[in-house]
C-alpha cells in the first residue's frame, strides 16, 4: 500500500458511494447531483492515476456539460422536489437489476482482478504526458479523431432535427387548440359529430337555443 493507493482508495470510495446513491436515491435531481459527485471524484481518480489531461477533460465535459444537460433535462421534464416513488421500477425488477448488477461486477472482477493482479504503474515518471497524448491523437489516431468530429456534427444536427420536428407538430396542435370545435383532424369520428351538431344548431336560428 503506497500513499497513492491510499488516496485512490479514498477517492474511489467516494466515487463508488456517490454512484450507489445516484442509482438508489428517490430524489430525482439528487440522483443527478450524486452523479456529479461521482464523476467529479472519478476525475480525481484519473489525477491520482497520473492522467491529468483525462481528468481535466472529464471535469470539463462530464461535469461541466453533460451533468448540466442532465439537470436541464430533468427540470424540463418537471422533476419534483422531494422523494418520489415513481422513478423506480417494480420491486422484482429492481431485485433482478441488483442481481444482474452484482453479476456484472462479479464477472468483471473475476476477469480483471487476475489480469491486473500485481500490476503496478510507476507514476513518478508518467509514461503519458499531455504532449505525448497530443502527438498520439494527431499522429496515430488522427483518422478516428476526424471521424469523431463528423460524429459530433451528426449528433448536433440530429439533436436539432429531432427537437425541430416536434416543434412543428406542437405548432399544429396549438393551432388546433385555438378552435375547440375542430380539435384534431385525425379524430374524424368525433369531429364529424361535433360539426354536425354545430351545423344543426346554426341552421335553426329560430328555435331559441342559439339566441
Amino acid at each position: 500500500m503506497t500513499t497513492r493507493d491510499i488516496v485512490f482508495v479514498a477517492v474511489g470510495a467516494v466515487t463508488a458511494l456517490s454512484a450507489l446513491l445516484s442509482v438508489t436515491t428517490k430524489h430525482v435531481v439528487h440522483a443527478a447531483l450524486w452523479l456529479l459527485v461521482s464523476l467529479g471524484s472519478l476525475a480525481g481518480a484519473y489525477l491520482v492515476l497520473g492522467q491529468e489531461l483525462v481528468g481535466l477533460v472529464q471535469l470539463l465535459v462530464y461535469v461541466g456539460a453533460i451533468v448540466v444537460l442532465v439537470l436541464f433535462a430533468l427540470m424540463l421534464t418537471r422533476a419534483p422536489i422531494g422523494p418520489h416513488a415513481e422513478i423506480d421500477t417494480p420491486r422484482w425488477q429492481r431485485v433482478a437489476g441488483a442481481v444482474l448488477g452484482g453479476a456484472t461486477t462479479a464477472l468483471l472482477a473475476s476477469l480483471l482482478l487476475p489480469l491486473f493482479a500485481g500490476a503496478t504503474a510507476d507514476l513518478d515518471r508518467p509514461s503519458t504526458t499531455t504532449p505525448q497524448i497530443a502527438q498520439a491523437i494527431f499522429g496515430t489516431w488522427v483518422w478516428p479523431f476526424e471521424l469523431l468530429s463528423v460524429l459530433l456534427l451528426v449528433a448536433l444536427v440530429g439533436a436539432f432535427a429531432v427537437s425541430r420536428i416536434v416543434l412543428q407538430r406542437d405548432g399544429a396542435d396549438r393551432h388546433d387548440a385555438d378552435h375547440p370545435d375542430h380539435p384534431d383532424h385525425h379524430d374524424s369520428h368525433d369531429d364529424g359529430d361535433r360539426t354536425a351538431a354545430t351545423t344543426a344548431v346554426t341552421s335553426e336560428p329560430g328555435t331559441g337555443r342559439v339566441g
Binding site: G12, V23, I87, D88, R94, G101, L112, F116, A119
Partner: peptide, 29 residues
C-alpha cells in the same frame, strides 16, 4: 507506484452499479 487492481475493481463496481441503475429506474433520464 500504484496497484492497478484497485482501479480495475472500481471499474467493475461502477459497471455493476450502472447496470443496476439502468434496470432499477423508470425515469428515462
Amino acid at each position: 507506484m500504484i496497484h492497478l487492481s484497485l482501479p480495475a475493481a472500481l471499474a467493475a463496481l461502477l459497471a455493476g452499479l450502472g447496470v443496476y441503475g439502468v434496470l432499477a429506474r423508470r425515469n428515462a433520464v
